[in-house]
Computed example of a mutant assay.
Amino acid sequence: MTFSPLPAIMLEPTVRAALLEDLGRAGDLTTDAIVPIGHRATTVLVARQSGVIAGLDLAMLAFRLVDQDLEMVVERADGSHVGQGEIIASVSGPARAMLTAERTALNFLCHLSGIATATASIVAAVRGHDQKIVCTRKTTPGLRTLEKYAVRAGGGSNHRFGLDDAILIKDNHIAIAGGIRPAIERARAGAGHLVKLEVEVDTLAQLEEALALAPDAVLLDNMSVDDLRQAVAMVSGRAITEASGRITLDTAAEIAATGVDLISVGWLTHSAPILDIGLDYPHASGE
């Protein structure tokens, strides 16, 4: 799978804010007291466990924002599968700046690599089927763009990025509107000609009602495997089918076998554990 890196202009505000949060009001008291000015070093970013890498541009930016003289040489690019102990990149330059930026760089790299690794695991679980694994809007506030990038690095795809991407009519919309029909009719009346419309259904009866109004997609929420199989047959290609709700590595293949088009998984972004990556100091040179 190929995917494009995010432009630096999209990354810098988030990385800058994270560095400023860490530097506080007085800077790095520990490093400034211990490491001499002008001391230079070379360190390596090492995977402490196997997984998929994502977030190297953020790590590089964290180092460069602290000191432009820091250089990072990437050995294993975003989207790469790495083994335990494998070197991902090396960082060279002023030691003070390197240590000051270390935690911010690692926070981004470990978090996003964890998401990429989790995504790759569920993509592997449905291999042999045609489904796409997609993420949701259950993201860390302020990090959605980055977390959705990490999903792509892991071989997944993105659902909508925000409320303005598409219309997704959920159970509360239906309840307030007074039913599926009025909800869809009102939504369609207010939508632009390029806006897709998806409706969430919990039962096959709701699905039948929704299909009569020709939505672009149907979200089959928390349905049993048997109901999902029947739902796919009912839709028969008239809309995109999306399975959602408590999908795990153990259940993903069975759900994929029902023939749904998409499997959306919230825990990829809201609960994926980090990938343990460290900045190791094999040698240094002083000036």
Rank of each mutant, 00 (worst) to 15 (best):
D67R: 12
Q68F: 08
D69Q: 14
D69N: 12
L70A: 03
L70K: 09
E71Q: 13
M72V: 15
M72H: 12
V73Q: 15
V73S: 12
E75G: 12
R76K: 14
R76G: 07
A77D: 11
A77K: 10
A77F: 09
D78F: 03
D78P: 02
D78L: 04
G79W: 01
S80W: 08
S80F: 08
S80A: 15
H81P: 03
H81Y: 11
V82P: 00
G83Q: 14
G83V: 15
Q84D: 07
Q84G: 08
E86T: 10
E86W: 12
E86N: 08
E86F: 06
I87H: 10
I87C: 06
I88Q: 09
I88C: 11
A89T: 07
A89D: 05
S90F: 03
S90Q: 14
V91W: 02
V91F: 10
G93S: 09
G93L: 10
G93T: 08
G93N: 11
P94H: 11
P94S: 13
R96K: 14
A97S: 14
M98D: 08
M98E: 10
M98T: 13
L99R: 00
T100N: 04
T100H: 06
T100L: 09
T100M: 14
R103G: 02
T104N: 03
A105W: 02
A105R: 01
A105K: 00
L106W: 06
L106Y: 06
L106V: 11
N107Y: 11
N107L: 15
F108H: 03
F108R: 03
L109A: 06
L109W: 03
C110Q: 15
H111T: 15
H111P: 04
H111A: 11
L112H: 01
L112F: 11
S113K: 00
S113Y: 00
G114M: 05
G114N: 01
G114D: 01
G114K: 00
I115M: 04
I115W: 01
I115Y: 01
A116G: 01
A116W: 00
T117Q: 00
A118W: 01
T119R: 01
A120Q: 10
S121N: 10
S121L: 11
I122K: 02
V123M: 03
A124H: 13
A124I: 07
A125F: 11
V126W: 05
V126E: 06
R127P: 00
R127E: 13
G128R: 12
G128C: 09
G128V: 12
D130I: 07
Q131W: 03
K132C: 04
K132P: 00
